[in-house]
Each structure stands twice: as structure tokens, then as C-alpha cells.
């Protein structure tokens, strides 16, 4: 059952160079208690999608120009700012990549968790602080009582991200959006945080949107994956299906471009070459008529640059926006 429905979402930014179509007609559903990964490279629109759901796009530079976002049946795009504030941090909460810049450096950890609890749960400050301590214990911060009185600079990067998770979960959200939650962390700390998130997911009754550029993180955390390229959804499938049979040439290219740490890439004793994706991502202020990936795609034909490919369910539950999925499948075989 889906608790969040995004339909034809379009978020544009109005820049000196023209209109940047950061999100250009994206649709997906988030099911109850599911982890959905949105994966893609810089500028593909994955973070803007997340910010759009929470209506956090700065009005001076950009706005949602089309589409609908429904949370438990309620349309979010038309809510007033005040109504939206009741949703943020309560029904839908978010954790960001860099915990140092999203925590307030002059407020104690306890204050920052408690203010969210007081705002949304209408309890006293003292009760909110008790809840804060409970939350720090939940995210496995030792000596939680003492930590409440500490400031963000006194904590390590991994601890700060635990605090962000504690704040995000403090009001029992239905949806947690995690935007590159472990990208700024070292690999052993990343393992701790991913492990914590997976464990908490079992305990809390929330669905997660995991936004990441890292296919390793996708493979280890998600049940379903949306792949984005140049503001569009190009592929969607369950995680097992996507890694086993990538149907979009971009997804396939990405998977082959990653240097693997679990296999030796050698070719007769020499280091094998990685599969490159030639060229680079398109400029989003350009109007793209056909498939945005066509100029870099080894399967592209004239049709690809002329007509935008629709999302087609060519295998059960597996959508891909490509005119030539049959050729991709053939090449994989």
C-alpha cells in the first residue's frame, strides 16, 4: 500500500542561463515500510525531488511547476506554509548529507531534539528532554543524559549523523527521507550508520527514501530502486531485478563503470579497463527533445534523439524509459 504518491513532478529553477529543468516529470510510489532508493549522479534531480516532497525549494530561485505529491491521500503541493510545517519533521522527516551544517552549532543536542518534539507532540519541555534522551539511546549514543548538554562540535561526524537520525525519528515519522546520509562519513562509520538505519527500520513503522549516488549503498539497503538521469526517471525495479537485469543503457553503463572491490578486474595479467560512459551529463537549461541519455548511449538511433521514450514495463514490475531495451537485453546475454 502506498503512503506517498508522486505524479509527474516538475521542479524548475529560473537561472540567468534560462530555465533549468531539475526535475522533469517524475512519478513514483512509496509503499508502507519499504526502503526506496533514488540513485543517480550529480545534477540528476534526486535531491531536488526530495526537497520538493518537503516543499523546501527556495522560492527566489525555483519552484514546483507541475505534478502532484500525495501523502496518505493528502495533496502536499497546495498546502499553506503553516500546514506544511506541521508535516515536516513530524509525518515526513529528512536527514541530510552533512550533519555539521544541518545542526545548529550554538544549541545543545538536547535542545535540538526537544524543540522538534515540543512543536509536534505538544508536550512539556521536560517530557521532550526525556524523549530526547530516549532517542539518543535508540540511536546507540552512549551516556545519553550527558550528551544532551553537549554541542555539535563536541561530537564526531558519525555521532552527529546519529543525532540527525534521532531528531528525524523523534516524532515517529511515517516517511524518512535520507539524502546521502553516509557520503561524508568514513567507510567503517558508514557501516555503523547503515547498520543502525536498517535496524531502526525494523523497529519503527516508517518507509524510507534513500537518496544516494552509491550503488553499493543501494544494494545493501533498498528493496526498490528508481534511477534518475537529467531530471527524469529512466528505470525502476526491485533491487534484485535491477542489478540482475538492468534494462536502461544508463543503468547498465553505471554498473559497468564502478571499480569493484569484490572482484579482480584483470585481463591476462593486465589491469582491465573500466567501461566508460563517454561524454557528460546534458546541461539542464537545454531543451531535450528525445532521450536525455542518447548522446552518450551505445544503443542510440535516430528515434532516440527525436522522440522521448515512455516508461515501458517490459518485464513484470520493471520499468525502463528506452526504445531499445530488447537490444540491451541481447547485449547482456
Amino acid at each position: 500500500m502506498s503512503i506517498l504518491q508522486v505524479r509527474d513532478l516538475a521542479t524548475h529553477f529560473f537561472t540567468q542561463d534560462g530555465v533549468a529543468r531539475a526535475v522533469d516529470g517524475v512519478s513514483f510510489d512509496l509503499n508502507h515500510r519499504e526502503t526506496l532508493a533514488i540513485v543517480g549522479e550529480s545534477g540528476c534531480g534526486k535531491s531536488v525531488t526530495a526537497l520538493s516532497i518537503l516543499r523546501l525549494i527556495q522560492a527566489e530561485t525555483g519552484r514546483i511547476v507541475g505534478g502532484s505529491i500525495k501523502f496518505e491521500g493528502r495533496e502536499l503541493t497546495t498546502l499553506t506554509e503553516e500546514e506544511m510545517r506541521g508535516i515536516r519533521g513530524h509525518d515526513i522527516s529528512m536527514i541530510f548529507q552533512e550533519p555539521m551544517t544541518s545542526l545548529n552549532p550554538v544549541l545543545t543536542i538536547g535542545t535540538q531534539i526537544a524543540e522538534n518534539v515540543v512543536r509536534h507532540m505538544g508536550v512539556s519541555w521536560k517530557e521532550a528532554l526525556d524523549r530526547s534522551q530516549e532517542m539518543l539511546e535508540l540511536v546507540k549514543i552512549s551516556d545519553a543524559r550527558r550528551r544532551l548538554d553537549e554541542y555539535p562540535h563536541q561530537l564526531s561526524g558519525g555521532m552527529r549523523q546519529r543525532v540527525m537520525i534521532a531528531i528525524a525519528l523523534s516524532c515517529n515519522p511515517r516517511v524518512l527521507i535520507a539524502d546521502e546520509p553516509t557520503t561524508a562519513l568514513d567507510v567503517t562509520i558508514q557501516a555503523q550508520i547503515l547498520d543502525l538505519m536498517l535496524e531502526l527500520k525494523e523497529k519503527i513503522d516508517a518507509a524510507i527514501i534513500m537518496i544516494t549516488h552509491d550503488l553499493g549503498v543501494v544494494a545493501e539497503t533498498a528493496q526498490r530502486v528508481v534511477v534518475m538521469y537529467a531530471g527524469r526517471k529512466v528505470e525502476e525495479a526491485t533491487v534484485e531485478e535491477l542489478f540482475a537485469v538492468p534494462l536502461h543503457p544508463y543503468t547498465r553503463g553505471l554498473m559497468r563503470a564502478i571499480p569493484r572491490l569484490d572482484v579482480d578486474a584483470e585481463d591476462q595479467g593486465r589491469r582491465a579497463r573500466l567501461q566508460e560512459i563517454p561524454g557528460m551529463v546534458p546541461v539542464l537549461t537545454q531543451v531535450i527533445t528525445g532521450c536525455a541519455f542518447a548522446p552518450r548511449c551505445p544503443f542510440a538511433t535516430a528515434q532516440c534523439s527525436a522522440e522521448r521514450p515512455p516508461l515501458i514495463e517490459s518485464r513484470p514490475g520493471h520499468l525502463a524509459a528506452c526504445w531499445h531495451t530488447d537490444k540491451v537485453l541481447e547485449a547482456a546475454a
Partner: peptide, 14 residues
Amino acid sequence: ALLSAAPVPDPTKK
């Protein structure tokens, strides 16, 4: 530990 911590892009290898 370092090798074990790094996420592998292969869901069959959890």
C-alpha cells in the same frame, strides 16, 4: 574490517 564495511554493489552478496 575495512573490506567488510565497504558496501558491495551486488544485492545477492549481502
